[in-house]
Design a protein around this nucleic acid. Structure first.
Lengths: 186, 186
DNA sequence: TCATAAACAGACCGGTTGTCCTGTTTTGTC
DNA sequence: GACAAAACAGGACAACCGGTCTGTTTATGA
């Protein structure tokens, strides 16, 4: 039941936004009573915090951090994840945006707790890429690249490209950025 | 009076978001009666559309499009605008985010009219940079660069970096991205 | 078996929201 | 100065919001 609520809340927060999602809508969509919702999540803010901590963080971990760690190199990992996302979007023809960025824009200025939770995920994302660069450097696969800067560039390009793709409802810009980022050398 | 309302609405939409800004708050902040507001903007949506068309578009034009057009080259223009924004943020110590991206994330999936208006601004932004690259190529200042791809990369990097800076409330990531983008060659 | 707490149901409330409506004042034009 | 249109004032309203409350069911575990 708690998970059902999280499912519905995650989808609604992503698709309509936090403020545009009413608890009534979520209750109806999840088939949950007001009492049940209030039992698991005392306030709407607590629900959003749970979505961020348990769903958004997991999404970033699953789609980005783990694949990059497992990749042959940082650059190859970034390229592969980017490519996979672009391919998926081109196929389904609808761009919902990056889960982390979607919530970050609406909530990071609204509340310090939201902001901290979201900033932590961004930080972990960048750090995973930077760590991979450092591992590459120790293994002689990479040289002359500033790990922190490369990580920031990769995450920023992806985030920004996804923003444009979401607004245009077209993944073309994402592919342009993927190609352009691939041509980057330090 | 109409401009006063637009001033207040722009600031509130940027700082708190569209859905979190109530017309009551805007009326109080602008010192405007309900009737006056309703006269100029029949609905809240009409007000937001006016903010997008008259303020957000002008902001992008003023801070990005015009300076890039006037710059010595596309790459130099992008670097200069990026640098100016970073310097300003580092000085004022508070990151409000990119006006266009802030609204785009919250509104582009909420309503087709919003989405179209925002997508047009993104498109004009990218096109201004791409046009400048083409001009550079005709003048022999640039070669081997795909204009569309470079423009997409520049805007995406800026947008994504601003997202992270806003969430972290720290312009450091923006500077990392500026440096990393400057090292890019095709 | 029975106490104890967690999980859930559903009505309820004060406050707020966006919008509409009826007047009044100001502005522009001949 | 007459008059039509635009600009503005401010109250009213129905719908909805998030949160609280009391009560019932289900699980737990000694």
């Amino acid at each position: 039941m708690r998970n059902k609520v999280l499912d519905v809340a995650e989808e609604s927060f992503q698709g309509r936004g936090y403020h545009a999602s009413s608890l009534g809508d979520l209750m109806a969509a999840a088939g949950v009573s007001g009492g049940a919702l209030h039992h698991h999540f005392p306030t709407k803010k607590a629900l959003a915090l749970a979505v961020i901590d348990e769903r958004v963080a997991a999404a970033v971990e699953g789609t980005w951090i783990a694949p990059v760690r497992a990749a042959a190199s940082a650059r190859e990992g970034v390229r592969a994840v980017f490519e996979a996302v672009v391919a998926e979007l081109e196929q389904q023809g609808f761009v919902r945006g990056c889960p982390l960025n979607n919530l970050a824009h609406e909530l990071s200025l609204a509340d310090p707790d939201f902001r901290m939770a979201l900033a932590g995920i961004f930080s972990a994302w960048r750090q995973a890429i930077a760590d991979k660069i450092r591992a590459d450097q120790r293994a002689g696969r990479e040289q002359g690249t500033d790990p922190q800067r490369f990580a920031a560039l990769a995450v920023a390009t992806y985030s920004g490209a996804m923003s444009m793709a979401k607004t245009a409802q077209d993944a073309g810009v994402l592919r342009d950025c993927l190609t352009a980022l691939g041509e980057t050398r330090t």
